[in-house]
C-alpha cells in the first residue's frame, strides 16, 4: 500500500458516494447513465468473487463490500426508486458493443485460463470502457450537472492514481501486471477530454456544456 494506491481507492470511494448522495438529495437520477451503472455493478461483481474464496485484509474486504453494495444501491435508485427521473431516452449507448469484444478479449488475453481469472480479466477490461455510455449521454445532451462532473472527476482520477501506484510498485517492488496497466491506461485516456473540460470550465465556476 502506497500513497497513490490509497488516494486512488479513496477517490474511487468519493466518486461512488458523490453519485449516491446526488441522487438521494435531489431525488433524481437525471443525467446519469443507468447503463454505465449496470456495467460498474457487473465489473465489481465479476472482480470481487474472490471475496468468497480468499481473505486478503480487513481493508480489502470492507472496500470490496462497500463498492459492491453502493453499485447495487445506485442501480436500485436509477431503475426502481427514482425510475421516473431516469433519462432513458438519452441513454442509448449500445452496451453489447462493449460486452462482446471485452468478453472475447478476456478469454484470449488473460493470466490463466480459469473461471475466476477470466472473470477478473473481464472486469478489468470492462471497467476501462464502462464509463462510455455516461460520456456518450453527456455528449448527446450537451451538458452535465456540476455534481455529475465531480463524480466523473473522482472516478477518472482514481485510475490515474492507480497508474502512479503501478509505477511505484514497479520501481520499489518489481511488481507489474500488464493487463491491469494497459486497461488502466486506456481507462485514464478516455477521461482526458473530460478532465480538460472539468479544469477549464467547472473549476472556474461554469457549468459543463458542450458546443451544439
Amino acid at each position: 500500500m502506497n500513497v497513490f494506491r490509497l488516494t486512488g481507492d479513496l477517490s474511487h470511494l468519493a466518486a461512488i458516494i458523490i453519485l449516491l448522495l446526488k441522487i438521494w438529495k435531489t431525488r433524481s437520477c437525471a443525467g446519469i447513465s443507468g447503463k454505465s451503472q449496470i456495467l460498474f455493478a457487473v465489473v465489481f461483481t465479476s472482480r470481487y468473487l474472490d471475496l468468497l474464496t480468499s481473505f486478503i485484509s480487513l481493508y480489502n474486504t470492507s472496500m470490496k463490500v462497500i463498492y459492491i453494495g453502493c453499485a447495487y444501491a445506485t442501480l436500485y435508485f436509477v431503475y426502481m426508486k427514482f425510475k421516473a427521473t431516469y433519462d432513458g431516452n438519452h441513454d442509448t449507448f449500445r452496451v453489447e458493443f462493449l460486452l462482446v469484444p471485452v468478453g472475447g478479449l478476456s478469454f484470449l488475453v488473460n493470466h490463466d485460463f480459469s473461471p475466476l481469472e477470466i472473470l477478473w480479466t473481464f472486469s478489468i477490461y470492462l471497467e476501462s470502457v464502462a464509463i462510455l455510455p455516461q460520456l456518450f449521454m453527456i455528449s448527446k445532451t450537451g451538458e452535465a450537472e456540476t455534481i455529475t462532473t465531480h463524480y466523473l472527476f473522482f472516478l477518472g482520477l482514481y485510475r490515474a492514481l492507480y497508474l502512479f501506484n503501478w509505477i511505484w510498485r514497479f520501481y520499489f517492488e518489481g511488481f507489474f501486471d500488464m493487463i491491469a496497466i494497459v486497461a488502466g491506461l486506456v481507462q485514464t485516456i478516455l477521461y482526458c477530454d473530460f478532465f480538460y473540460l472539468y479544469i477549464t470550465k467547472v473549476l472556474k465556476g461554469k457549468k459543463l456544456s458542450l458546443p451544439a
Binding site: 494506491r5 481507492d9 474511487h12 474472490d50 480468499s54 486478503i56 485484509s57 480489502n60 472496500m63 470490496k64 463498492y67 493470466h111 490463466d112 480459469s114 481469472e117 477478473w120 492507480y162 501506484n165 511488481f175 501486471d177 491491469a180
Partner: peptide, 10 residues
C-alpha cells in the same frame, strides 16, 4: 504460481 498472484488491489 497463481495462488501467489497479487489480488490485493481493488
Amino acid at each position: 504460481d497463481l495462488d501467489e498472484m497479487d489480488k490485493d488491489e481493488l
